[in-house]
Design a protein around this nucleic acid. Sequence first.
DNA 1: TCCTTAATCTTTACACTGTCAAGATATTGG
DNA 2: CCAATATCTTGACAGTGTAAAGATTAAGGA
Lengths: 196, 196
Amino acid sequence: MEKKRYHHKNLKNELIEKGIELVDQYGINQLSLRKVAQACNVSHAAPYSHFSNKEQLLREMQSHITNQFAAVLEDTVSKYKNTPDFLLEFGKAYISFFMKWPQYFSFLFQQGNIRIDLDIDGNEECNYRPFTIYKEQILKLLADADMSQSKKEDLVIALFAYVHGLTALTTMKNVHYSHKWEDKLNDLIKIFSCEF
Amino acid sequence: MEKKRYHHKNLKNELIEKGIELVDQYGINQLSLRKVAQACNVSHAAPYSHFSNKEQLLREMQSHITNQFAAVLEDTVSKYKNTPDFLLEFGKAYISFFMKWPQYFSFLFQQGNIRIDLDIDGNEECNYRPFTIYKEQILKLLADADMSQSKKEDLVIALFAYVHGLTALTTMKNVHYSHKWEDKLNDLIKIFSCEF
DNA sequence: TCCTTAATCTTTACACTGTCAAGATATTGG
DNA sequence: CCAATATCTTGACAGTGTAAAGATTAAGGA
């Protein structure tokens, strides 16, 4: 028989993961601290031993998802880097992730915790690794191109904005991911490949 | 002296507008039905005479903002339609709107109430006029182009996704709108104008 | 080993939230 | 002028985030 232990030992991580599960199932609007605590079989105030408030739990959940997402993208990078298919495959991986977990997109970007350094005044920092990964690869592809550095960085932002924007559009329709979409995505991403 | 009237006469609209004001000032997370009611000098349950629940008020607020936004874009269209500057000016107007009211972007797109017909299976509908407006104009510009209809529609989606994606990126940094940005935007939008 | 301290969890409490039901007030049409 | 309806108030309730105080466990030094 399972003895109910007072101490949980790994509560912090479990709160983050159960929280993400609940967002996945019911969406961010239905999420409450107390439900997350209950899902971990723990009193409603227990989370306050690990997070200063709800906001912080949400931030750590976002960070956790972002890291998973980045890992998926790293896989894609290692498969397709320095190949002509990279642009398409990265875009497909990016969109597919949010098609698989539609609740994540608005959850990640609604609170305003994600920052991307668009290098306008240079004193911001980026905490969104998917962008960093993308930027790094594209700059490699452009290494020998006849362009100024600033023009290259503009192109990075442009391509990334395009992929991210496509994701925003596809997730706002609650269409299930279909191969039909994947085909269309091929065409869409090729539209702007003319730059290369 | 202002006599306190029991009946408000125009409460529904005022709730929508005060609600939007509060979102503008404090963000959607700080918004509550009761605060909106209080801002209208009305009891906390009064909104239920006009909205079935909070969700519906939020939807009507979103719809109100979207209509204002569409009106701004229509102005831009009437100024620049059928000119070489249209693509750039529309993009600038689109982004500028959300730079002016940064809270609106996540508010509009977080609840999942906005649908855009990407014509994947054709049985969806679009309730987001900014896209409709854009689509109409681009298709006009492409009227004589040597392209299939489906390719034209792909291009519409692509261009729109790009503008929308740029907006997403610029609003996630809480940078104040600057002319420096407007210059950069020029470059960014021109990147993909090569299609024309 | 025991004791002190810190970390982790529970319990209790409170103000705020969305929502409903019952009642009060105003408007409208006959 | 009256009845029906629309609009607003009041009161209530369960659910929420969060703080404070207390209980339990863990860890480290004597």
